[in-house]
């Protein structure tokens, strides 16, 4: 993390730039701006190993909080897919900062993921299409991630702002 700080001139400054009207219009896209108690927050360098460590911490924290096992496992899977995409696509395997907030907003786990990598192609979140399943030679070995995210998460929002990607989603508790 050397040389990359997140003080008021970094992401904190960008966060304060999102006004109330913006939040109303686009939904909660800011980990600091979402109502409800903060259950989990990590800021870490992108990588497959840090993703694993953060998700194991998240699982343990939510278990201690007594949340439903199904919601916990859904959150872990959804966030694994989101973080894998950030590592692989936003940062192309290079080290970069990721910040994750998880809040209990009453009806679910409100998650926000921020990174400073490249935006989505055409600034649009990928859809949920699955590749055709034609066993065995043409079976897809990838392209499952967004299908899983969109199958399990609700209230997906994305915003590109001040050089960072903000992705907000909710994991239903029920």
């Amino acid at each position: 993390m050397a040389g990359r700080t997140l003080g008021s001139g970094g992401w904190g400054g960008a966060r304060s730039g999102i006004g109330a009207s913006q939040r109303r219009r686009s939904g909660a896209l800011d980990g600091a701006g979402v109502p409800g108690p903060l259950l989990f927050h990590r800021r870490f360098v992108a990588g497959d190993q840090t993703t694993r460590t953060v998700l194991e911490d998240l699982n343990a924290t939510l278990c201690e909080d007594g949340l439903p096992p199904k919601a916990i496992s859904n959150a872990e899977l959804i966030l694994a897919e989101v973080l894998n995409n950030v590592v692989e696509h936003a940062y192309s395997g290079d080290p970069g900062l990721i910040e994750l907030w998880v809040r209990d907003d009453g009806g679910g786990l409100a998650c926000t993921i921020a990174d400073q990598g490249v935006p989505f192609p055409d600034d649009v979140m990928p859809g949920s299409d699955l590749a055709a399943i034609t066993p065995p030679d043409l079976l897809p070995e990838g392209g499952f991630g967004w299908h899983i995210i969109r199958s399990l998460a609700v209230e997906l929002h994305h915003q590109r702002r001040d050089g960072r990607n903000l992705l907000a989603l909710k994991v239903p508790l029920g």
Binding site: L55, S73, E76, L77, A80, E81, N84, P136, D137, L139, P140, E141, G142, F144, G145, I148
Partner: peptide, 16 residues
């Protein structure tokens, strides 16, 4: 207890 789409892709690769 945990498998993501990377793990799924690896299982599919072994099958192929």
């Amino acid at each position: 207890s945990f498998l993501d789409s990377s793990g799924l892709g690896a299982v599919v690769a072994v099958m192929k």
